[in-house]
Nucleic acid binder design. Structure first.
Length: 273
DNA sequence: AAATTGCGCAACCGCAGGAGG
DNA sequence: ACCTCCTGCGGTTGCGCAATT
């Protein structure tokens, strides 16, 4: 990361053609310096009016790029790390309700960005659909999510609620990435955070002032315990989610890899039918 | 050990809608 | 009513890295 990416600069011999070339706008990964410029400017002047912000901050970036960088990476309340089972359940639930309304879904997952949720959906959920050789929008796959995946996630969440979480749950890690109490702490990986797959859910807990996932967990507990379901996603069969109790045990290692090897086509149709 | 493949994620692109002149 | 600019959203791309061959 931190590589120099200058659009329109071809050894300095060509005449600038596009707006980007004329403005000498930068593209590609953000450098630590750029992040600091943006952070400091927003700290002093607030966010919004991104085009003029980019100019005033001395950033050779488009306003769009600045906005994206701030919202998806620099914002102090960003959470990073694995999507927890609670969050997975919420994403599945809300997606069944709203479809690809990533921003809307993200509003219900504090600290998560629409980009992150979108990536999660594409890389994880669509992968399973692919393995099952069915379309993510097909009834088969939706039923699979509703009657197999989501009940298992709920079982997982309940199991986790019985067994007290490990002590470090929700406690800021020393290796927390770029932030500490809202203060920007640039690291060598500033523009290329690469620890997501192995980080615990407690990442970024400092910025939210509450342990990561607590709000969601509380919300889900209410929903599960109180029988809450969004209208459109309410169980359609009388037994609803009750039969999740009849499902086979989950494998032990979930580690952010939901339902891997949990289902076969036969398994699914047995359950769905 | 080197090459290849697959995955995860940051960043970009195009479009739509709203605000203001 | 029209135009321009800005913002936000969803889709897509491309890079870096790890796993596999």
């Amino acid at each position: 990361m931190g590589m120099e990416v200058h659009a329109g600069v071809n050894g300095g011999w060509t005449i600038p053609q596009t707006e980007e070339e004329i403005m000498d706008l930068r593209r590609g990964p953000w450098t630590v310096e750029e992040d600091l410029l943006l952070m400091n400017y927003i700290a002093n002047h607030g966010e919004g009016r991104w085009n003029s912000l980019a100019l005033c901050a001395g950033l050779k970036r488009t306003g769009k790029s600045c906005r994206l960088r701030w919202l998806n990476y620099l914002r102090p309340d960003i959470r990073r790390g694995n999507i927890t089972p609670e969050e997975q359940l919420l994403i599945l639930e809300l997606h069944s309700r709203w479809g690809n309304r990533w921003s809307k879904i993200a509003h219900h997952l504090p600290g998560r960005t629409d980009n992150e949720i979108k990536n999660y959906w594409r890389t994880r959920v669509q992968k399973h659909a692919k393995h099952l050789r069915c379309d993510v929008n097909s009834k088969q796959f939706k039923d699979t999510m509703r009657y197999l995946w989501m009940p298992r996630l709920m079982e997982r969440i309940r199991a986790a609620a019985v067994v007290p979480p490990p002590p470090e749950y929700g406690i800021p890690e020393s290796g927390d990435k770029a932030f500490s109490g809202g203060q920007f702490r640039p690291g060598p990986e500033c523009s290329g955070y690469a620890g997501s797959s192995s980080d615990s859910v407690s990442s970024m807990a400092t910025a939210t002032s509450e342990p990561a996932g607590v709000g969601i967990q509380a919300s889900l507990e209410t929903q599960i315990g109180g029988g809450w379901w969004p209208e459109e996603a309410a169980p359609t069969s009388p037994e609803g989610y009750a039969y999740r109790l009849e499902l086979p045990e989950l494998e032990q290692d979930w580690g952010g890899e939901p339902c891997e090897n949990l289902w076969s086509t036969e398994d699914i149709w047995q359950l769905v039918q």
